[in-house]
Each structure stands twice: as structure tokens, then as C-alpha cells.
Amino acid sequence: MNIKNLTKKGTIFILILTIIISTPSTLVFSEAESIQQQQEIDLQQDLEFLGKLIKFIKANYAYEVTEEELMEGAMKGLFYYLDDYSFYYNKEEFEELTQTVSGDFGGIGLHITEKNGHVTVLTPINGTPGFRAGIKPDDIVVSVDDIDIKGFTSKQAADLMRGEPGSKVKLGIVREGEPKVLYFDIVRELIIINPIEYEILKDNIGYIKIIEFNEHTLENVLKALGQFKIEKVDKVIFDVRNNPGGSLNEVVNVLRFLVPRGPIVHIKYSNGEIATYNSYNDDVNFKLAVLVNKGSASASEIFAGAIKDLGVGTIIGTTTFGKGTVQSIMPLVNGGGIKLTIAEYLTANMNPVNKVGIEPDIIVENKTEEDLQLKKAIQVLKEQ
């Protein structure tokens, strides 16, 4: 066969093959582009429709409502079909959320509750403005800045007491044995919430209660552990019962002082990627027991799950809540913000937690006033 003709035919074959191979991907790419463009058009039409709907409601609704209120309702509605932990927050709600996460807020430092229909002081936080002003446990708060708070919830009352550090608040207090209402003018300060309580129990066993994992958890856990080392305490009970969670970074950083080198928790994102948080600790000093219950959620489940999977402690109590998801908190330009579930976490051994929880090594229920779970933890550590 003529080489020239063969070359010519080969060139034609390669050209045809190139067209056959390349054409489908070109068509797919064009189709994908077309779908994306259509989606953008649909979204734009939906947004225009939403704007018209807001204007229609404002013009025809029987009662007073602003476009800002309707827009806020629409933004909250965006999260309607999402999980229970994703929300839109207006400016006031978002400020409260960020204060809760950080553990810092402007206020006077009172723990309050609702008792017999009254907002009642549980205790003033030591060293805070409320403590220094002379507010006492069992004081009944009847007014805040001359606003009668009869019928208010403790949250509503707390919102009134909080404010910018340096600003003043006036409390009206009814105190047993005092014939008249007592008034206190108190200057607010930055209140830093220490989420840690600790003590040394009998038999030289340390006890640390973590109320939440806020931005001050690590520093205060380390203070407690430092004191335990001075007292030669090497057996420690961590109590995360009714701990609703908090900061992922904070719980990971605490665990890095308690568990050996290796994975602590795995974070699985929506695109399938998995990020692993590790411990680098080659010197584990404490024998541990961890108390949990159905109120232990999120970061406290990461805590218990790591201790259990890595075999450095005994989990005691009842199965935890089962909130195995991670949320990201993002501020918005309008002063509000969103909390959005962005990932699910898995324990060190890749076990799921969401809607499952952490099952204790030893199941103990508190059915009486005696703390049977704590009693069992002490027994377990004494036997080690």
C-alpha cells in the first residue's frame, strides 16, 4: 500500500477519533453550563417574586408590619427545611449567641432563676459588680431600670441586666427581713464566665465539672490539672453531664492534654472530605472516668467519645444526646448572622454520633437524690 495514502488515511482516522472522543465532553460541558445558567435565572426570578410578595403583604396585611420584619421572616424561613441546629439570627439574637459561645458579656454577674413566680438570685459570681454591690442569694429582683419585671422569665430579666461595660443598671430587690424594696445602682463590667468547677474528693481523686466548652475552658481545666499535679492526684473524674457542647477547638485542645498521640475526632464535610484532629501527647498522666447523661451533647460527646475510643478512661452514666454535627457561625453585613451545619463528626474509631450518642461503658441511672453515677466513678477509680 502506498505510504502516502496510508498516512493520509491515518490522519483522517485520528481526526475522526479525536472528534468522537472530544464531542461528548463538549456536549456535557455545554449542558452543564446551560443547567447552571437556568438555575441562576430561576433564582433571580424567585428573588424578584419574593420582593413582590413582601410588598403585597405590607400593602394588604390588616395590621402594622414593616418590610424589614417581613424580610427577617423570609430569611428565617430559608432554614425551615434544614436541621435543628441551623438558624438565622437577627442582630440582637446574634449578639447573644456570640456572647454565649465566647463566655464573655457585659453585665453584673448574677446567676438567676425563676422561683415561685419571681426572678430570684441563685448566687452572685464572686468578684463581679453584683457581688461587690451586696446582692445576695435568694434576693428577689422586682425591677430593672424601674421596669416592673413581674411575670418575666429569667432570660428576659437577664437581657435587661446585660449591656455595655461601663453603663449603669438599677435593680430593685426584695430581701427577706427588709420592709422596703432595696435599690442598687450597679456599673456593668465585662463578665468572663469560668465554665469549670473542681475539687479534690476523698481518696485523693480529682473532680472537674465542665459546664460548657467556651473560650475559657482550656485555661481553667489546665489550672485544675496543675493543682492536681501539685497535690499528687493522678485519678480524675470529668463531669460533662448536662453539658450542651460549645467550641470544637476548645474540646480538642483540652483532650490533647488527656489522650495519647493519635486521632481525637474526624470531621466529615458535605463534599466527602474528612479532616482529622490529632493528639500529639506522649505523656498521659491521669487515669480518667467521665460522667455523661442524655443532656451531654456535641462537644461533650466528642470529649467522651475520644476518652472511650482511645481507652484512657471509663464512661459512666446514660447514653448521651446524639448531636454529632458541627456548626459554623458567620456574621452578616446587617448585624445578624447564621449558624449553619457544615459537617458531621465521627469518633476516633470512625463511629458516628449523630442521632446515636455515646453509650457508656457502665450504665448507671440516677433515680434517687444520691448521685449514684459519681459514686460509681469513685469506686471505679479506687479499684485502679
Score class of each variant (00 low, 15 high):
G10H: 02
F13Q: 08
L15T: 04
I21W: 08
T26E: 05
T26N: 12
F29W: 00
A32C: 01
S34D: 15
Q39D: 12
D46E: 13
L50V: 09
G51H: 05
L53W: 04
I54S: 14
F56G: 06
N60T: 15
Y61P: 04
A62F: 11
A62T: 11
E68R: 14
E72S: 09
G73R: 06
K76C: 04
L78P: 01
F79N: 09
L82S: 09
F87Y: 15
E92M: 05
E95D: 11
E95V: 10
E96H: 08
E96I: 05
Q99N: 12
S102Q: 04
G103K: 11
G103Q: 03
G103E: 01
D104K: 14
T113K: 03
E114C: 02
G117I: 06
T120C: 02
G127L: 01
G127E: 04
T128L: 12
F131R: 02
R132H: 11
P137E: 13
V144G: 12
D148P: 05
D148G: 02
V169A: 09
L182F: 04
L182G: 07
I186M: 13
E189N: 08
I196G: 04
I196M: 06
Y198M: 00
E199H: 00
I205N: 07
E215G: 09
H216M: 06
T217L: 05
K229L: 13
I230W: 05
I230S: 04
E231A: 10
K232M: 02
V236K: 14
I237T: 05
V240P: 08
R241T: 11
R241L: 12
R241E: 09
N242G: 05
N243S: 14
P244M: 08
G245Q: 08
V252Y: 01
N253W: 03
L255H: 14
V259Y: 04
I264S: 07
H266N: 15
Y269L: 13
N271V: 03
I274V: 14
T276N: 03
V284F: 10
E301Y: 14
F303K: 09
A306L: 13
L310K: 14
G313F: 06
I315E: 00
T319S: 10
T319W: 00
G322T: 05
I329Y: 15
N334A: 09
G335P: 13
G336P: 11
I338A: 15
L340W: 06
E344Y: 14
Y345H: 10
L346D: 15
A348R: 08
A348S: 15
M350I: 01
K355R: 04
V356G: 01
N366Q: 04
K367L: 13
T368I: 11
Q373D: 01
Q373P: 00
K375P: 02
Q379S: 15
V380C: 05
K382Y: 01
